[in-house]
């Protein structure tokens, strides 16, 4: 994942330099729309990688190989990661700032679902 994070600025540079969008900006242009979607993906990609790197547990769709139970199910770390990670944009290529929204459960006890 660190590799991914390192590669993304390169890919982004190359995209902005070399993208070839046919058609004009003054007119119905699907190619422009698609190019702008890719630009958005490239803006979002470093955030996804950063978030995945920082969350040292496996939870739901987020799976880290080094955090799994003996039968290969997701292993959560509720003590350290029981929060929603809200990231603040700090500028292009800058690291995002983390704001933790703590998840506290008063009436229900946190447990693990069994898929067996």
């Amino acid at each position: 994942m660190q590799e991914t994070l390192d590669r993304i600025p390169e890919i982004r540079e190359e995209f902005y330099k070399n993208v070839n969008v046919l058609g004009s900006g003054n007119d119905f242009n699907k190619n422009l729309e698609h190019a702008m979607r890719v630009a958005d993906y490239l803006d979002f990609a470093p955030l996804m990688a950063e978030d995945a790197l920082h969350r040292e547990e496996s939870c739901g769709g987020h799976f880290r190989e080094e955090h799994q139970t003996e039968d290969h199910e997701a292993k959560r770390d509720d003590e350290n990661f029981s929060y929603v990670a809200a990231w603040e944009y700090k500028g292009k290529n800058a690291k995002h700032e983390l704001h933790k929204e703590e998840l506290t459960f008063e009436n229900v006890e946190l447990s693990t679902r069994s898929y067996k």
């Binding site: 046919l22 058609g23 119905f28 190619n31």
Partner: peptide
């Protein structure tokens, strides 16, 4: 094919 020839594709 059109894109490879640098022509605007068909919408």
């Amino acid at each position: 094919l059109l894109m490879k020839q640098n022509t605007e594709p068909f919408a």
